[in-house]
Structure formats: structure tokens, C-alpha cells
Nucleic acid binder design. Structure first.
Lengths: 338, 338
DNA sequence: GTTAGCACTCTCCTTAGATGAGTGCCAACT
DNA sequence: AGTTGGCACTCATCTAAGGAGAGTGCTAAC
């Protein structure tokens, strides 16, 4: 549907705009990218391409700006090519390896690193935690009928929540309860043991069956409610970009960044099983992202539940960003397996 | 050293600037605040006050802007007065009470609430955690010699970190170790039991004494390294303020907000034992805060270790902000004691 | 010590003209 | 039919100039 030349023009306009930040005119494209065709020819093609929805003009006498349809073409063409790993890969790997104090600290660090390296907002998410193996469940009495529920997942990710049980239990009974649940759940993801535990009669705890059942209900609630964890880092970097000099645009993005839940859902929705996925501007259902692109890559770390991502301007340097994202995702794999 | 009238002028200029955001001129002050004196008189006084360091002029023919010295006077005068509790207090209390899932969730919510209510950045910090009573210490084997250390503090605040022990221990021995340490530490703050545990010989664990000792060292390291926890919320709000239309200023603040450690130290440094403390612009040693004020109030919740705060522009509405901050700090006290 | 008056300064807004990048279209060329 | 050069036209951006307005500093009189 697009001729070879038209495709070249679209890619050139996107590339030129990403590089310079200025709308690209027919003359520029003719001189810098398609020496064989004159500006007038390019001009005619560009008018056609505008009709086809690849470009738009901020005003009549300006050059063309790419629409998300054009970015899509550009990104797809990039994805075909091989990307050389960035030179800093080894350095990053070393730095990440130093963050050994725990998954959360490491992912928080990674999100910041991503932000710094790409001048975008870095995101690191753990998703579908109900699919991660459970390491231990325990309960700590806080006072009254309030109990702290601790769920340790494989790799040392800790979930905790204060819950209310229908009656007061002593710490001994709570320990017993924790042991029994752990015995069943340990080594399996919650989704597998969930049903078993709901019907499981806890030997020796028949007296407090109601309360035990409530505890299981609460575990389920927590793993469903907060089945992902999200880290965002380096929002300051995109403020330097010309694209976000408009305060309103940045405010929109910042509002989204402050909604952990919405962000986590978005990340999960647009990531794919394997490899890099890119969602561009109005391809994203979140209205707030209409001036941004979202680049995501799952990393093999943490039972394949880690997703790294970038949120940046439409005209981000996709090639560089994707290369960096892939490199850091690779570093993370190694670190988390350890 | 300041005459009654000079004081009035300083306070009027600050007040006027806070309300309008425009530099205040002698005529305005004369007409709106000091009807008894003519503009010319005010003008003379203002020139003196400028020499004394209370005002400065953005340019010769503009009105006067308050320096931090003037804001200081204004804030001090406000602190004398009674502040009526905001009408929303009850509503906030109810909303906070709904966040029962844990301390972290509650404080995160409170920081966002603070931000929304005041149009500043809300901050909620837990400080000096080595002074909070320990509820339980336990260890979970993650694989190899990597162990997850879990410290539960009074009220359900969880610290966790992956640590490396010099040799591999079975989960049973780790449980034993956790039990023994808990037995000593439970009910006391770390600072009190720290020394005892360092010299304590753990009965029945003599074989692995080195490893046990290392575990204690790690607990100490964690409670020292991360002896505070910080939540920041609502940064988006200050973007609407005219004071932060200048992207550079906002970027400076955002950079600071993204440095949890530095922020936590600052909060601890400028908060006082009891009551509201206000640090204004260059009174704060952090260069990045030179265009901001920091308002802090300790709340009685969580063993008096909770500090709530606001980061906003120099010309924030101190009276309103402080009233809101105090009200929400009060709400929190009740909620955390429960 | 206080006040009115006045000259002066400096920002901000508006207007107008010049500049330049880029387009759309037409006629001529291959 | 596709391509090209030429040309009129549009529109944002830049600059300069003039006027309005706010506010000051200073002086002389009260």
C-alpha cells in the first residue's frame, strides 16, 4: 500500500524529527535523505502521506510532524534490525549486582538507572505475583484482633498487611496457623494452592476454624488486590526534554506516575510475553499517555515476572532506548537468578 | 529593633504577596493595610526595611518582595495565633481510618492527602526506627547462603533485606535463631538490646556462633542504614502554582524528591520534638530548597516517630497549610493508636 | 516625622514590518 | 504519467518602537 519511496519518506521524517525536534520539510528530506528526488516530488508525496494519516502540520507553512501511525512504522522497522548492546552494559551489570539488599531495592535502583540512561522515566514492575512461588506465610499479633500478615515470595519479595481477624488468637496459635499454611503453600504459587487452602481443614485448629478461614480469605484478597509491585524512577529527566517544556503536558504525565495502581495495570496490559513491546501515544488507552510512548520488555528475572519499561516522549530515541532497555533487562536476569 | 509600624509593613507585604503573587507597592500597602499612613511614608519605611534585609526588588520600578527574613517574621507571628481546625478534619479522619491495611499504605495515603489538601508536596516520614519497639525478628532461607531478614516493629512496620551469612544454615536453625533473637529483643527498641545481643551467646547455637553473630551485625546495619522511611505524595500539585511555572525550579525540587535518603535526613534535621516547625528557603542547608519552604510537625502516632510535612513555595499560605498539617497529624495520632 | 508632588525607571503590551521556512499548485520537461 | 522548477502565498518568529502603567526616589512644604 505504501511505495518504497513513500516508506522511505515516512521513516526519514520520523528520524529527522527525532534527531532535531523540528518539523521536517520537503527540502530537508530531499537534501539529507532522498538525494534522488527533488523537493517538489517529496512535497507531492508528503501531501499524499498526510491524507493517508502519517503526518500532520502544526500550521500551513510548517514542515510535517509524524503521527503515531508514522512512529509505528518507524518503530516496526527498527525492531527488524539488530541492535548492538550499549558500551555501558558491563558497568550497569556491576552496579545492579551491588544492590543486593533485596528485590525492592534492586528494582527501585533499576528504575532510576533506566531513567538516567535514557532520559525517560524508568519503570520496573513485578506482575502476576499470584503466580510466584510462596516461600512462607506467617502472622504476627499486633494487639487486639489486629494481625500482621507476612507473605514471603520466592526470591525474597515480602508482602505485608494488617488484617483483622474475627477473634483474638494468641501468638502461639498464629504461629501454628502460619506453619500449617506454609506447609501447604510453600513451593507453589498462590493460584495453585488457593482452592486447596480454602477447603483445607487445619488439623488441630478446628476450634478456631472460622478465624483461620478468614486468614486465608485475607491472603487471597491481598495477593489479588496487590498482585503487582511497581517502581518508578527518574521523572526529573524528561523535564529537560523540549517535549515537556509545556508544563501542562508534564503535569499530565506526573499525575499518571503518581497513580501506582493505574500504572501497574497499564504496564501489564501492554507488555508481551517475550521481547520488546512499544505502545505509542494514542495507541494507549490511557488518555494521559497521548503524548508519550511506552516501551516495555519482560526480563527473565524473578520467575519471568519482572517487566522493565520506559515512559518517554513520542519522539524519544527509540533505537537507543530499546537497546538500553534490553541490555539492562539482560543484566537483571543474571542478577536475580544468582 | 523594628518599630510597630515597620513590623506591620513587613507582615502586610508578606501577606499581600502570598495572596496575590504580585510584588507589593507602597500605595497598595497604604490603601489596604495601613490606612493611617500615606504611600510616601510607607515608601520611606520600605526603603529602610530593604536596607535591613526584609525586602528586595526584582527591578527598580517594581514593588517589594519579601526575603526569607520577612517570611520568618510572618511565620513567627502566625505561630502565636490560634488556628481553627479546618472543616474537613472529620472527613480526613474517616478517610485515613479506612487505610487500615498497614502503616506504609496509611502513610503513603496521608502524604497524598496532604498534597491534595494544601497544594504542596506531602511528606510522611517515620524516623529513628532504632527507637521503636521490636515485635519480631525472623529469617527465611532463600537459597545458598542468602537469607531474608524480616524485622517487624511495633505497629506492624516491616523491614526486610536479603543478607549473606558466612555459612549455609537450614531453615530450622534459622527459625531457632529468629526465636532466640526475638525473645531478647521483643518489646524493646533496638538501641536498647543492641549491645546485649552483640555479646549474647545463643544457647544451643554455639556451633554456628560466627554466623549468628553476623546475623546480628546485619540487623544492626539495616536498622542504622534505613532507620527512617519516607513517603512523598502529590508532587503534581505544586506544578499548578505560579511559583513553579519556571521549569528549572520545579526540576530542582523534583530532583530532591527523588532522593529518598537526602529527604529523610532533611526532615529529621528540621523537625522539632513537639509542634510545628517551619524552615524557609535559604534557612535550609539544602541548596535545592532555596525556593521552597518546609513545614513539619511530629505526630504522636507510632511511638512519636511519625513526622508529617509539606514542601511548598516560599509564598505558600502558611496559615492554611499549618492548620491542615496539624489537623491531619491529629487524625493520624488517633488512627495509629487504635 | 509626615505628606504631596513630580521626574524617572523599568516592565509589559501592542503594533508593524521584515525575515524565512515551507507549502500548494501550475506548467514544462522526460 | 511521473518528475521537476518556479512562483505566489501563508504563517510563525524576530525586532524595533511607542505607549501605558506601576512604582520608586527625592525634594520641598506642612
Amino acid at each position: 500500500m505504501l511505495t518504497e519511496r513513500q516508506l522511505e519518506i515516512v521513516l526519514s521524517v520520523v528520524y529527522e524529527y527525532i534527531q532535531t525536534g523540528e518539523p521536517a520539510g520537503s527540502r530537508t528530506i530531499s537534501k539529507k535523505y532522498l538525494r534522488g528526488s527533488s523537493a517538489a516530488t517529496i512535497r507531492n508525496e508528503m501531501a499524499d502521506l498526510e491524507d493517508m494519516g502519517y503526518f500532520y502540520q502544526p500550521h500551513t507553512s510548517a514542515g510535517r510532524l509524524p503521527t503515531s501511525k508514522a512512529y509505528r512504522l518507524y518503530v516496526d522497522s527498527i525492531m527488524q534490525r539488530d541492535r548492538p548492546a550499549p558500551a555501558e552494559t558491563e558497568k550497569w551489570k556491576r552496579e545492579i549486582r551491588e544492590q543486593r539488599q533485596g528485590i525492592d531495592i534492586m528494582l527501585s535502583y533499576v528504575s532510576q538507572l533506566l531513567g538516567k540512561a535514557t532520559n525517560c522515566v524508568g519503570v520496573a514492575a513485578l506482575s502476576a505475583l499470584e503466580e510466584v512461588e510462596i516461600q512462607r506465610v506467617s502472622f504476627v499479633r499486633l494487639g487486639g484482633s489486629t494481625v500482621l500478615l507476612l507473605i514471603v515470595l520466592e526470591g525474597g519479595l515480602v508482602h505485608n498487611a494488617n488484617i483483622q481477624l474475627p477473634c483474638e488468637l494468641s501468638q502461639d496459635i498464629l504461629d501454628e496457623l502460619g506453619r500449617k499454611i506454609s506447609a501447604v503453600a510453600c513451593g507453589h504459587p498462590w493460584s495453585q494452592v488457593r482452592d486447596a487452602l480454602f477447603t483445607y481443614v487445619l488439623d488441630g485448629l478446628e476450634r478456631v476454624w472460622d478465624t483461620c478461614r478468614e486468614a486465608v480469605v485475607q491472603i487471597d484478597a491481598i495477593l489479588n488486590r496487590r498482585s503487582s509491585r511497581l517502581f518508578v524512577g527518574g521523572a526529573r529527566h524528561i523535564l529537560s526534554l523540549p517535549d515537556f517544556q509545556d508544563i501542562g503536558k508534564f503535569q499530565t504525565v506526573l499525575s499518571l506516575l503518581e497513580q501506582e495502581q493505574a500504572l501497574a495495570e497499564m504496564v501489564e496490559r501492554y507488555s508481551i510475553k517475550q521481547g520488546v513491546s512499544v505502545a505509542i501515544g494514542d495507541e494507549i488507552s490511557e488518555e494521559m499517555m497521548k503524548d508519550c510512548s511506552l516501551v516495555l520488555v519482560p526480563s527473565a528475572g524473578y520467575g519471568r515476572r519482572t517487566i522493565l519499561g520506559l515512559i518517554g516522549p513520542l519522539r524519544m530515541d527509540y533505537e537507543k532506548s530499546i537497546a538500553i532497555l534490553e541490555a539492562i533487562a539482560g543484566d537483571l536476569d543474571d542478577s536475580l537468578i544468582n
